[in-house]
Amino acid sequence: MLRFLVGRLISIVLTVWAISFVAFAIIQLPPGDYLTAYMAELSAQGERVSPAELEALRRQYSLGDPFLVQYWKWISGILAHGDFGSSFEWKRPVTELIWGRLGNSILLEGLAVLVMWLVALPIGIYAAVRKYSLGDYLATVFGFLGLAVPNFLFALVLMYLTYVWFGTTLGGLFSPAFERAHWSLPRLWDFLTYAWAPIIVLATAGTAQLIRIMRANLLDELKKPYVTTARSKGLPEWKVIVKYPVRVALNPLVSTIGWLLPTLVSSSVIVSVVMNLPTAGPLLLRSLTSQDMYLAGTIIMLLGVLTVIGTLISDLILAWLDPRIRHGGAR
């Protein structure tokens, strides 16, 4: 087990390094740089910038350096003193901008995942055990509806309905009073009164998928002989199902936790824009359009790191759940 862990840690370091390189390369791919985008914006407003001025700015941000030199400056800054560079657009260090928003993202998506699992697993189990029953068909219909309706549309409908029915506007994650406060019980309560809507919106699509996967996995397991054995022992039916086939059917799902989080972060961009959520998604979008390279690069890299860590965590959970993986002897 220890060897497994050490091996994984080494490969994680290498993967993260590769991710940082690719992330930096991606944000350099579009033609031009922040200054050309900035110039375009200024001239659209009718202002003129002299070529000499531009050259001075470019030297100041060392945008004229070769790619590898720029990369080296960036990565050595991160490794040496946790400096991810500065955002051109916001004129502030990237770290200052990111932590709060990334934290909001993780909190929001984490809660969405939790809701997803809590809702989907019991329904999936029910749908498998009572295959082709009315409940199974209802779960399927609503599941596919949730899958088919675009998130942002659902968000808009929800905002409209709450405005019509309750006269409140949904949007944001905090009321102004708590926007910059430290975490406390009242702030948590304030957060929940705002966050329930985006959580529901983000959870719906995933729920449908999860119900289908759980149902299919469990249907496979229910036919296995060990279920009959458990039944022949005299266990009550619900215990037979929950203790044996459900337990085995969960394993493939656990292994997906890892990439669930980053997928949610990137898929929630539109929802975040629509509902005006201070999460990482819109920040990433904006930094990409304005070629704010250090900010964009950092967000992309951190998403990559999240995936890697998430995968490690789900691998560890899987090894803990499934002895065939833990002992590496599955036949």
Binding site: K224, P225, Y226, T228, T229, A230, R231, S232, K233, G234, L235, P236, Y244, R247, V248, N251, L321, D322, P323, R324, R331
Partner: peptide, 25 residues
Amino acid sequence: LRKIRGNQIAMIFQEPMSSLSPVHT
């Protein structure tokens, strides 16, 4: 029936591999 199952009438099956749960000792 559950009081009879396992307690008074027990059963063994053909495939000892798949008839035992893979994730429990």
